[in-house]
Computed example of a mutant assay.
Amino acid sequence: MRIWKIWACAAAIAFAMSGASDRAAAQTYPNRPITLVIPFAPGGSTSIVGRVIADKMAQLLGQGVVVDNRPGAGGTVGTKFVAKSDPDGYTILLGYTGTLAIGPSLYKDVGYDPRKDFAPIGMIGNAPSALVVHPSFPAKSVAELIAYAKANPGKVNFGSAGVGSVNHITGEYFARSAGITLVHIPYKGTGPALTDLLGGHIPMALAPIPAVHANVAAGLLRALAVTGKTRNGLMPDVPTIAETGLTGFEASLYYGLVAPAGTPRPIVERLNKELQAALASDEVKKQLAADGTEITPGTPEEYADFIDKDEKKWSELVKASGVEQE
């Protein structure tokens, strides 16, 4: 009994000291620059959103927030890097539907668990994608695209940010729903995919609206549809895929911030506080709205719950599309 009491007392002291240490760390946090890992190449929607948030949070935190683009394997390379990083609040990740909801189902050994290996900080926002084609492509509507693909099976290529990215699975989901065959061309990010699309090297791509709307407005790309439940404010004349006849079709991506599991709670709370302040600022609201991103702020717990539900949804789409990787 005496030994048990000594052990219990020691455990209580250790717990108290741990809590005190976490609070002390939070009081001095941050005292050096923070690295925000974006798991895709520069130029895509993740970089657009991530850099807006990084710039504003740097002002609010009083420390630099350095963006580190780490592309590869549909964003899972950079995501795994953060999962294995020190949980001290100085390496955080721009979480994304492709990496936290799709990757774990797409790959047999993705190298991280979206529920266990991260401490959610908070959601940023969501945005649908656009189905865009090069102006030289003969289809001017989704119906014409489907008819063309049926007449030319296996000859219509589409680009995405990489194997396992949201728009890869969305493309497979679209093809399956339409009863057509599309050939996926993976790139190391949305930026490289759009470069090839603009150059006419591929005829079609699925890409986030923030990354394509300027080129659509300039007539350099043609938007056939958007993947959300409703039309997007940046492209009000472009129908949803569901409107074109594929009833019930909907696929949007979500962004948020996460840190490695084990990051002290006070640090997570500090980051969430400044993230909420950033999202509430007129400057960030204007920048994200201009890029078609709907702000959806929330608590760490709300984001954790969303990650769980989003992973379940997309895992079903991955299995239904039959695109699991070794």
Score class of each variant (00 low, 15 high):
124 I>V: 14
125 G>N: 12
125 G>M: 13
125 G>T: 05
126 N>R: 15
127 A>D: 05
127 A>H: 02
128 P>F: 01
128 P>V: 03
128 P>R: 07
129 S>E: 14
129 S>G: 14
130 A>I: 02
130 A>K: 03
130 A>G: 13
130 A>S: 07
131 L>R: 04
132 V>G: 06
133 V>D: 08
133 V>F: 09
135 P>S: 14
135 P>F: 08
135 P>W: 10
137 F>M: 10
137 F>Y: 08
137 F>V: 11
138 P>V: 01
139 A>R: 10
139 A>M: 04
140 K>V: 03
140 K>C: 01
141 S>A: 08
141 S>C: 06
143 A>V: 13
143 A>K: 14
143 A>R: 14
145 L>W: 05
145 L>Q: 01
148 Y>R: 04
148 Y>V: 00
149 A>I: 11
149 A>Q: 14
150 K>A: 11
151 A>S: 09
152 N>C: 00
153 P>S: 12
154 G>H: 06
154 G>S: 09
155 K>I: 03
158 F>E: 04
159 G>S: 11
160 S>K: 03
162 G>L: 04
162 G>P: 00
164 G>C: 12
165 S>R: 04
165 S>Y: 02
167 N>M: 15
167 N>L: 10
168 H>R: 01
168 H>M: 04
169 I>T: 12
171 G>Q: 09
175 A>N: 02
176 R>I: 02
177 S>Q: 13
179 G>V: 05
182 L>Q: 03
182 L>F: 13
183 V>R: 15
183 V>S: 12
185 I>N: 14
185 I>V: 15
186 P>L: 09
188 K>R: 04
188 K>S: 10
190 T>V: 06
193 A>K: 00
196 D>M: 08
197 L>S: 08
198 L>N: 15
199 G>W: 07
200 G>H: 11
201 H>A: 08
202 I>C: 12
203 P>M: 08
203 P>Q: 13
204 M>C: 10
205 A>Q: 05
206 L>A: 07
206 L>V: 02
206 L>E: 15
207 A>W: 01
